[in-house]
Design a protein around this nucleic acid. Structure first.
Length: 273
DNA sequence: CGGTGGACCTGCTGGC
DNA sequence: TGCCAGCAGGTCCACC
């Protein structure tokens, strides 16, 4: 479900609920996520004021007092919902973080590809899940020349290249397709053969697409929702993703669907070369 | 080393 | 109506 815009939308929706709150307890009902949830390490964090709600790539970061940060990844189907701690557990509700005002943050994830991990705030950048991650796409660290350097000598197609978190983070399947369309680049182009100026245009396209999606509250294809249960609207703005057979808005040719590295790719055969 | 394919899970949809 | 294959927004590891 979530790419960067969805996680950022979630982060913003959490702010009013979590700012100044204290984490007072944890209930782990189903520890079998992508890696087992460590109940004891979570419990040892409590009680603690939540000092900040951040994000790195697709990880939501809850910074606690006492040099602890909770890393939360939603995988493909995860959600975080703020509700009263007295609320009934629903199917696929796995963990609850209990807050000092009687509310709680419920981690819900049908496919259980998500993660909930405790890390040391002072060594966060060195954490194994974060250490290898590339630049944030919306910060100044991402540049056309940086991408060009990373692509030098790479025979890999540009679309899976963009989805490689070591190259740039936060660009998943939807936004890789959309950014390549916006930049007029064919998704199968070998990364090492893209010209310098086109990398600049691609960086611009990535920023445009992600920024527009955040403004729309993310993309809700089946079940994304922010912590208040509200869906996003960016699916109404996608130009190619999920639109196989529809006419391209620029040239009118039918959008195509192919598969790269086991993932669906959508593109316009007319304007992406 | 770079690159691909499968594994990890459950739920929904569409075709027969 | 019912069943079942195929597909889904993300990593991560084994293997070529």
């Amino acid at each position: 479900m979530p790419e960067l815009p969805e996680v950022e939308t979630l982060r913003r929706s959490l702010l009013p609920h979590l700012t100044g709150r204290r984490l007072v307890g944890v209930v782990v009902r189903e520890p079998r996520l992508r890696e087992p949830v460590d109940r004891d390490r979570l419990a040892a964090c409590c009680p603690a004021v939540i000092e900040a709600v951040g994000r790195r790539a697709k990880y939501l970061l809850l910074r606690l007092e006492g040099d602890r940060t909770l890393l939360c990844h939603l995988g493909m189907s995860g959600r975080l919902v703020v509700e009263t701690a007295a609320a009934e557990w629903q199917r696929h509700d796995h963990v609850r973080l209990l807050l000092d005002d009687g509310s709680c943050l419920t981690f819900h994830d049908p496919r259980r590809f998500g993660r909930l991990v405790v890390a040391a705030t002072s060594r966060l950048a060195d954490h194994p899940l974060l250490a290898h991650l590339g630049p944030e796409p919306l910060g100044s660290a991402l540049t056309g020349s940086g991408l060009r350097r990373a692509a030098t000598g790479r025979r890999q197609a540009v679309k899976p290249f963009l989805m490689d978190g070591r190259v740039v983070v936060g660009v998943g399947n939807i936004y890789a397709c959309e950014a390549l369309f916006a930049a007029h680049i064919h998704p199968a182009t070998r990364a090492g053969r893209i010209r310098p100026l086109r990398w600049d245009r691609l960086v611009e396209a990535i920023r445009e697409v992600l920024t527009a999606s955040i403004a729309a509250g993310g993309t809700t294809l089946r079940d994304f929702a922010d912590s208040d249960g509200r869906g996003g609207l960016y699916q109404l703005h996608t130009r190619v993703y999920g639109r196989a057979g529809e006419p391209c808005g620029r040239c009118g040719r039918a959008i195509r669907r192919t598969v790269q590295c086991g993932r669906a790719t959508f593109y316009c055969p007319g304007c992406q070369r």
